[in-house]
Amino acid sequence: MQPFISATNISKRYGTTQALDNVSFEVGKDEIVGFIGADGAGKSTLFEIMTTLLIPDAGEGYINGMSIDRDYQKIRSCIGFMPGRFSLYQDLSVEENLRFYANIFGSSIQENYAMIEGIYTLLKPFGKRKAGALSGGMKQKLALCCALIHKPLALFLDEPTTGVDAVSRTEFWDNLIQIRDSGIPIVVSTPYMDEALRCDRVAMIHEGKIMDMDTPKEIIKAYKGCLLGIFTGERYLAKAIVYRLAGIESVYTFGDSVHINLPTCHPQIMKQIADSLKQGLSAEFQLRELNPSFEDCFLQLMGQAANER
């Protein structure tokens, strides 16, 4: 089957900074593909190239058979793009923004209301409010409605949930899943590692390169070595103690615990770690093997990339 969206060997340089370095990927019609990486990793540049707003130095891209180079006008009229920076008209009301975006794409709110109904119901009470006066989560929902109102063939969402609270993020992703199921493929970027799990496939992007691209499940399966969690109130002390031990690959704080990566979780090594913690910590702690989260995998890949330099 032909991929719906494809990019081949895309590179882009700004002065001495290689923003994108030979990036290739494909997106199927029934997929949400996530680009996960830090600010400055190249996500926005990639989104701007794929939505024909920026010309790459090298490489090709296609959306439903249309070239991002030659068919840019056609592409612009049939995709939806939500840029990272809030770019609706702050002085227009919620309704006015929506009507404006529908009109410039030659459509109307009524024509495609079904597309946005689920999300717009939540916005409706604020219909007369100016977009600039909405809360962060509401702004993002409105921007998504505006990107959807012309019934696009594909959606590109650049960090739609940055600055959005945890509960609103969950709701926003419920919306994305519905949109995908209605037949619109989605390319989305995010700095939140937990959102990776809701994508069909994920590309981890770091310094302009795709480090790995696979289903979240496979990425987690590929985690190297063993992961231990220390559950304690004295996390910084625990971190300092295990840092000094031999054979530890990495130590990171993770909310209420400290995660340690080891080549293996041999009982002898676990006992050694437990003994050192017993000596150093003043309160009770728990040490146990954990299943890696997506963030553990991302940290491991970033660590590897840093070592290879």
Partner: peptide
Amino acid sequence: EPTGGVDPITRRAFWDMIY
């Protein structure tokens, strides 16, 4: 929101600074 949009390694480095 000092760490909004920041990568997971830098977020942790930032919290070291907070401590």
